[in-house]
């Protein structure tokens, strides 16, 4: 299947290229856009593996939600150069540390990695039984891996609470529309019909 092979190299090459451009782009917004392009290519790779569900979820969650937040942040925060210059010296060490950590991890993994003997006889897809990729994931995720699934729920809960705590504003008196009050308002509380005699006023 030459075409699908070519597709693989196309997507893989574009993924690597856009990852590289994410790193070297000068404007943060451009970086974020290259990152989005990388996610899309990653979704293409998932499709080539035959896992449609993961490809679509990848697009929906990473591109449609996470990257939107990135773009919001990157677009709306105006970098203050003077403050940044002071802080950046310190921050520069962190990526180096992380890089060393992941680099050594890669060395360990690649050094000790080999195929499981039966790997070549396995099929990544449950395509032999007539069952779609999505159903296959759904059948085990909520039963066999139920505990991990609930842990994911707790992580999301933590994220939600954390976001609210971080963005909490001082409670102040707000003008809020109370729709129930508006709807429940009676005519007699608001309108008074009175007879006004001529030349006397109310």
């Amino acid at each position: 299947m030459v075409i699908f092979g070519m597709m693989f190299y196309l997507f893989a090459g574009l993924t690597l290229l856009s990852a590289f451009l994410t790193l070297i782009a000068r404007a943060p917004v451009h970086s974020a856009l290259w990152l989005i392009f990388m996610f899309l290519n990653g979704a293409g790779l998932f499709v080539l593996l035959g896992s449609e569900l993961l490809a679509m979820i990848f697009v929906i969650v990473y591109v449609g939600a996470v990257a939107v937040l990135f773009l919001f942040v990157v677009m709306m925060i105006k970098p203050q150069r003077e403050v940044l210059k002071k802080e950046i010296k310190w921050y520069k060490r962190i990526p180096v540390l992380i890089g060393i950590f992941f680099g050594s991890e890669m060395v360990f993994i690649l050094g000790g990695w080999s195929f499981v003997p039966v790997a070549s006889t396995l099929d990544q897809l449950p395509s032999r039984v007539q069952i779609s990729n999505t159903t296959a994931i759904g059948n085990i995720l909520y039963t066999h891996y139920a505990v991990l699934f609930e842990i994911a729920g707790f992580i999301l809960l933590g994220a939600m609470v954390g976001a609210i705590v971080l963005t909490k504003r001082a409670p102040k008196e707000r003008y809020r529309q109370k729709m129930s009050d508006q709807v429940l308002e009676k005519k007699k509380n608001r309108i008074k019909i009175c007879h006004v005699d001529i030349r006397k006023g109310v």
């Binding site: 989005i36 449609e52 569900l53 679509m56 979820i57 697009v59 929906i60 591109v63 449609g64 939600a65 939107v68 773009l71 677009m75 779609s132 990729n133 999505t134």
Partner: peptide, 19 residues
């Protein structure tokens, strides 16, 4: 097979045009 998700994914991408 995942037509619904495709539609959902593409419509979630359309935010980018505006931004």
């Amino acid at each position: 097979n995942v037509g619904v998700l495709y539609v959902f994914a593409v419509s979630s991408l359309s935010v980018y045009g505006l931004i």
